[in-house]
């Protein structure tokens, strides 16, 4: 048997420790709960503008124009979306959303694919070859990082219009392709390909094009996917450049179209604007969420 007092002291110590542990547990639970609450609030706040537009797009124009700001779905969803899709805004622009969506899609795809294509080729040249002017070429590309298209927008417009490319896909897309981010990402990735792999391919008799096709391209798929998401979103969301370069409805993009749809507010068919907004943000949001894994990786790595 233990001594009485010692046993008591020990029991007290144990009880104290248990109480402290319980307090810590409670505190942790409370903190977790609080964390969830704040995050849910944040998410809700983030989603609120979208929610309002999503709900508004299912009501008739009078409800929205009266300023009722519906927070629950109404009965006009099919009608509004169908009207927007086939007709656009009846009182203002009258360009069907489907046509503008197609333009946006073509632009986003061509920008993404074009930029990836020219970047992967030039990065391959810069990393895997040694030739006079290599450094110069690299810097010529690298320096484009310094000036986003918005900064040089008017001079670029001048050049494009001199070339007669206003209101063409070519004029819309090519200037947006001239940028270094994708080239730098590929270069970064190519530098991590072990030298031995290139040597093994040389031993196996693969020339540079064969090595590119059989090894570099398959190994780059993750990077290509990541860049695709970023560039598709970038292309889809262009505003200033298309605003300048497109004056005809034939090449008008959805992002421009929405703003034009609002026009003079007295006439605005807000419910169709809302439906169009939902349609306009659906493709890039879908691409980001569906390809989230590559997208996050790509984003963080492009900016390194």
């Amino acid at each position: 048997m233990m001594h009485g007092p010692v046993a008591t002291i020990r029991a007290e110590a144990i009880a104290r420790a248990e109480a402290a542990a319980e307090r810590a547990d409670t505190a942790r639970r409370r903190a977790d709960w609080l964390t969830h609450a704040v995050l849910i609030l944040g998410v809700a706040l983030f989603a609120l503008p979208i929610w309002i537009v999503l709900m508004g797009s299912t009501h008739d124009v009078a409800t929205v124009s009266r300023g009722e700001v519906p927070l629950l779905p109404g009965p006009y969803a099919v009608e509004n979306y169908a009207a927007a899709w086939t007709e656009g805004s009846a009182r203002t622009t009258r360009v069907p959303v489907s046509a503008m969506m197609l333009n946006s899609f073509v632009m986003a795809m061509l920008i993404a694919v074009g930029k990836i294509a020219i970047s992967i080729l030039s990065a391959y040249a810069v990393v895997f070859f040694s030739f006079p002017g290599r450094l110069l070429a690299f810097w010529a590309i690298f320096i484009t990082l310094m000036l986003p298209v918005e900064v040089r927008i008017f001079p670029t417009f001048q050049v494009v219009s001199d070339l007669g490319l206003v209101n063409t896909y070519t004029g819309l897309i090519l200037p947006l392709i001239a940028s270094a981010t994708a080239t730098l990402l590929f270069r970064q990735f190519f530098l991590t390909i072990p030298d031995e792999l290139v040597e093994a391919a040389k031993m196996d008799g693969a020339g540079p094009l064969r090595f590119f096709k059989d090894v570099v391209l398959p190994l780059s798929t993750t990077n290509i996917a990541a860049l695709f998401v970023i560039l598709f979103v970038y292309g889809w969301n262009q505003y200033l450049w298309p605003l300048l370069i497109t004056t005809s409805a034939d090449v008008e993009t959805i992002v421009i179209g929405i703003v034009k749809m609002i026009g003079a507010e007295a006439d605005t068919e807000w419910n169709r604007v809302m439906a169009t907004t939902v349609l306009a943000l659906l493709p890039p949001v879908a691409v980001v969420i569906l390809m989230q894994r590559w997208f996050v990786k790509g984003l963080v790595e492009t900016e390194k």
């Binding site: 503008p49 979208i50 537009v53 969301n237 505003y239 907004t277 943000l281 969420i289």
Partner: peptide, 16 residues
Amino acid sequence: LLIWPYAIAPAVAAVL
């Protein structure tokens, strides 16, 4: 739930 606004165009965000 927090990353998707990245995909929204500035102009579309404005409309929202």
